[in-house]
Amino acid sequence: MLFYLLSVIALLGGLGVVFSKSPMGSVLSLLLTFFALAVVYLLAGFAFMAAVQILVYAGAIMVLFLFVIMLLNLGGMGTRFELSAAPLSSSRAKLAAVVAAGIGLAGLIAAQRTSFPALPEGGAPERIDDIQQIAIALFGRYSLPFQAVSLLLLVTMVAVLVLAKRRGKESAQ
């Protein structure tokens, strides 16, 4: 019951992100979604995941989003962010929408087809969010993918820096 309520809240938040007229509204809607998801984790017994979700996404990443929006929007704080319909109807946007829909559909099909391992006898293990278990899995069995992901983040960061520098140079000339 609670789960359905939370799903509705999360979905409403998601819709708010897309349909909100001001970027600030989008960010706050996304925040709402993250909170609803955190409570869903909590319901499933992943207290650790819930806390990390709030700590990382709500506490750090969304604040950075807010920061960027505030800094870019300094000129007209009270004015609404004007979204024209033109870029949305370009062929690129259509392609992007198709790709996004395809990925979502593929995810749905994959979730349908995958058979999740049945719970061991006697229901879920007692301490499903044992931090030691998570740490052992993260730094033991999945150590290589974990480091690969951090490397990917590093590469992204360097790429963004290079792009930003180039644009800065162009505007200087």
Partner: peptide, 11 residues
């Protein structure tokens, strides 16, 4: 997860 809870919400 008391410490995490505290950090998450104070953030």
């Amino acid at each position: 997860i008391g410490v995490l809870f505290l950090l998450a919400f104070s953030g």
